[in-house]
Amino acid sequence: MEAEIDARSTLLRDSPLFRSLEGAEINRLVELSEIQEYSPGETVVVEGSMGDAIFLLYDGELSVHILGTGGRDITLAQVNSQGAFFGEVALADPGPRSATVRADGESVLLMLSLEALEVFFGEFADAQVVILRNIARVLAQRLRESNVLVASIASDSSSA
């Protein structure tokens, strides 16, 4: 049990989402977190459903999908490195999930529900802005990458 709690706190502490949090804050998040197990083919998050939790990958392999035109399934990304996370947008921007996440292999996730996070922010008010800034940083990084991709595709097609 203790080893498992250590593993959870390491997972949280090493995540860019929880960067700069204090030890006591990490410990409380560990208490509020929940371990979830998924079998291959099971969906963790469904595109269009309301986002109500953040997930960190403990072990396993998942993939991110969106519905393309005509219901075509498009795979956007693989989630397979420990500490990888998804669902974090829900915290900054509550609304429908933008993609479906499905387990490809036996997967173990650490889940933090928005409800649990509300409790946490009630106790550690300063942590909220830290986590939001971390999320914004992650989003900014992804946006920078997407913009590089847009620019490279656009300049390829204009020079072709």
Binding site: V89, A92, D93, L139, L143, S146, N147
Partner: peptide, 14 residues
């Protein structure tokens, strides 16, 4: 919070 919301919107657009 507003920046994060806007980033998430722009990321979806991108």
């Amino acid at each position: 919070l507003n920046i994060a919301r806007n980033l998430s919107l722009r990321l979806r657009e991108a």
